[in-house]
Design a protein around this nucleic acid. Structure first.
Lengths: 119, 119
DNA sequence: GAAAGTAGTTTCCAATTGGAAAGTATCAAA
DNA sequence: TTTGATACTTTCCAATTGGAAACTACTTTC
């Protein structure tokens, strides 16, 4: 009998796992997916719009998360010179590449809910 | 001029956002996706296998995360009556339904890496 | 001049997260 | 009998996360 080999150390697998960690390092936190999902659906939302749309978030978190997302080129921040100054947040083209991830997550969430609450 | 209507309050959108929150409430934390991804690739891994495969995790976290995942019926825990007791962790059929989410996340992570580190 | 709406920032605090290290318990091989 | 391997658990602690509330600052409306 041979001794147990070090399981599947295929480089493919390692890369994949690293990729997952990379994604999550950017998308971690309680609100990122929610904010991105909202911006993908309704483009060009103001700060107060987002505060109302993203259920439960406070202004501090929203501000911080938007800064994170902006830094990672996932959302755009555009200051409009309107009478009371307004800001338009929108998803970037690059941010839109996250749509498959968010769609998959939303789809799974719906199925999950169905699986627990009767049916 | 009308006053600004309450933006897109389509029920579809609300449901979608709720679904995302539901998913994330189960998949939150630093390690869940990593562990699930590992178990989807290589089935039937022992505790120590996972400790080695999931880069950087400690035994406390691994133990806790596995309990969470087991509670949510995403992974199976099977105690084998071998000489030194061993445990086999594997993904459940239900856990496999997360494959599209994890695949999308991994795919995005690969593209992300490419987009930052030069071409 | 007070109220309300824009877009945040700041402070203060509590809870959660997560890591290192050591400990528990069992069994087998050297 | 000491070492090593399995599978955890416990303790202790530091860092991070996140929320409530108050505050800034500017402008328009009542």
């Amino acid at each position: 009998m041979k001794k147990k080999a070090t399981i599947n150390n295929t480089p493919v697998c390692q890369m994949r796992m690293q990729a997952i960690s990379d994604s999550m390092s950017i998308l971690s936190g309680k609100w990122k997916f929610h904010i991105l999902g909202t911006l993908i659906e309704g483009d060009k939302l103001g700060f107060m719009d987002l505060l109302r749309e993203v259920d439960g978030i406070g202004s501090k978190m929203l501000s911080k998360e938007l800064q994170d997302l902006e830094m990672n080129r996932l959302v755009n921040r555009k200051v409009m010179d309107t009478k009371p100054i307004t800001v338009q947040y929108s998803i970037t083209e690059y941010g839109k590449t996250l749509a498959p991830v968010i769609d998959a997550l939303a789809k799974w969430g719906v199925d999950y809910k169905r699986s627990i609450s009767g049916k």
